[in-house]
Amino acid sequence: MVLFGSIVNALGIIGGTLIGLLLRKIPEQMKQTVMTAIGISVIILGIDMALKSADFFYVIVSLVVGTVIGEWLRIEDSLHYIGKVLEKKLDKTESSNIAQGFVTATLIFVVGAMAIVGALDSGLRSDHSVLLTKSMIDGFTSMVLASTLGIGVIFSAIPVFLYQGGIALFANIIHSYLPPALLDLLIAELTATGGVLIFAIGLNILGIKQIRVANLLPSILIITLIVLIQA
């Protein structure tokens, strides 16, 4: 089943969020320290991913073009709008910020090497081990995020499933058309581009610099087109 890994990942996020909502009595200082640790880890992971590129010039081009597209489409504003709608409909008494939880969790869970490589493995080789591992990581992270940011985190399971499931289905269709060398190059450049976005997410978590990371997401598509065109 091509979508098995994506389904388990989404369920992991939902389960982690529900547990996190029960752990809201965790001392605030502990929450802040854990979030700081996550932010530092995310930054390090982003740097490691970004160094996977064979030619970082293409990554820079994809980021510039992708960011222009993202700003034009106002993707970040759209995500916040969805979160605000959910907040109005489902959280009339809570003081938690559903929009912040939804956007933060979505960006953390969607952008990354494991999401891309895991979904490709599911689609190309029916190997779900990477996504199953990611499910455990995302489950723990969603638990921590939910204890701090509230129920908005649970809704990130939807874009995570759609994103990873879409990649898995797409990979399942095209795997017979791409030579192994090109596929390896594509994974490397996607990972590097995603690494820059992950780094930006880390800066946001630590409060060092607030970056509209969602508006950088089109760069993932742009780097894919660049690799396929120049191959």
Rank of each mutant, 00 (worst) to 15 (best):
E94S: 03
P179K: 10
L23M: 12
Y177G: 03
K89I: 00
R212C: 03
V110C: 15
G20P: 00
D77Y: 11
L185V: 04
K84M: 05
I14E: 01
A115C: 08
Q230I: 15
R24N: 06
I26V: 15
D91S: 04
G66P: 03
E76G: 09
G118P: 05
K209M: 10
L124R: 03
F140G: 07
A200V: 10
G118R: 04
V196F: 07
Q29E: 13
G112H: 08
T104N: 01
N215Y: 07
Y177H: 06
I167H: 07
I44M: 15
S129T: 13
G66Q: 03
S135A: 15
H128I: 10
V111I: 15
L225W: 06
I75H: 05
R212D: 07
L225H: 03
I229A: 14
L21P: 05
S147D: 03
H80G: 10
M114K: 06
I43N: 09
S122G: 15
K134G: 10
I116Q: 05
L11W: 02
S142V: 00
D121Q: 15
L169N: 02
N97P: 14
S176Q: 13
R125H: 14
I208V: 08
V61I: 15
I198R: 01
M114G: 11
T148F: 01
I220A: 05
K88R: 11
I211V: 14
L190Y: 01
T133L: 12
G5M: 11
S6D: 05
L182G: 09
D48N: 13
F102V: 01
D48L: 12
L21E: 04
I19F: 14
V85E: 01
A99C: 04
L45A: 15
D48G: 05
D48Q: 11
P218N: 08
L120G: 07
V196R: 01
F57Q: 08
D184E: 13
N172W: 06
A200P: 02
L185I: 05
T191K: 02
S62Y: 00
V34Q: 09
V111K: 10
Y177R: 06
I226P: 11
G152M: 00
L216D: 08
M136L: 08
E189I: 03
A188D: 12
P179Q: 12
G15S: 09
I220N: 03
D77Q: 11
N9I: 10
F4E: 01
A200T: 06
V160R: 00
M114Q: 10
T67R: 03
N172F: 07
E189S: 03
W72C: 14
R212N: 08
V103P: 10
L120M: 14
L162Y: 08
K134T: 06
N97Q: 11
M35H: 12
L185N: 06
I116G: 03
P218G: 06
V42D: 07
I187P: 04
I167G: 10
V213K: 14
P180L: 14
L51P: 01
L206S: 01
A188M: 13
I187C: 05
V130M: 09
L216A: 12
V68H: 03
M136I: 11
G101H: 00
S147C: 04
V103L: 14
V110D: 07
G46P: 12
K89A: 03
F109I: 12
